[in-house]
Amino acid sequence: MNQTNPPENNIEAKPAPVRSWQSRGRIFGIPVSLIAIWAALFVAASAVPALPVPGMGGMITVNAIMTAISGVVLGPAAAVANMAGAIIATILFPFGAFFGPISFLTATVGGLIAGLTFANRWKLAGAIELLLIASWFVNPASWQPYMYLVPLPYTGIAVLVIFIKPLREWARNQILTQNKVWMWPALFLFASIGHAGEYLTSNSMTNWMYNLTWQYWIPTLPYWIGVDTVIVVLSMVVGVGVLIGLHRARLPHASDLYIKK
C-alpha cells in the first residue's frame, strides 16, 4: 500500500486561528459564554438594592456598578450582555421598572458607549453620546431654568474623554497596560462614561414619559451628583480589582483584543 504521510511542515503552514469580530461563538470578539455569565451577574446585582431614589419606592441597585465597568471588561459586547441582563431583571423584578418594557435601554446604552470608547470606536460612541444629549435638550421640559445643569457633571466628563484624543488614548493605555497607579483615574473616566450613558438615557426617558419639571430636578441635583460620584468611585474600585484579577488569572476579557502585541 502506497501511503504517504503529510509533511510536518504542512501543519505548521496553517495560519493560527485569528480572532475576528464575526468568529463563531463570539460577539464583538467576546465569547458568548462570557456574555451570558455577565448577564447572569447583572441580574444577581439587580436584586441588591443600594441607594434610594428620592420620592420613589424604587432603589438604585448594584447593577449600576456593573453597567459602569462593563465597557472596559467586555468592550462593545457589554451592550449585549447588559441588555440581556436588564431584560431578565425587568422580567424578574418588574416592580422597579419605571419605563416598563423599555427599561433595558438604560444599561444597554451605558455599556455600549463605554465599550465602543474602550474599543477606540470613538466616532460611533461620540455620535450615540451626542444623540443622547440631544434627546435631553430637544424636550421642551429641558428648556426650563437651569435644566442644562442636570446632565452636565458626568456627561461632561464622558464627552471630554470620547472626543479628546490624547485623554482617551491615555486612559485606554493605562488600562491596557495595567499601570498600577494611573489605572485608577483611567477607570474613573471610563466608569464615568458608562454611568453617564446610563443615567442620561434614564433621565431623558423620565422627561419624555413623565415630564418631570425643573422643580424636581434642580433641588434633587446635589443628591444625584452625590449618588453618581458614589457609584463611579465604587465602580473604579471594583473595576480595578476585576481587571487586575482577570489579567493575573489569564481569563478572557476585552483588553485581550485591544492590547498591541
Partner: peptide, 12 residues
Amino acid sequence: LTPLILGAFRDS
C-alpha cells in the same frame, strides 16, 4: 462583586 465576577468568569 470583585470575587463574584472573577469566579463567574472562571466558570465561563
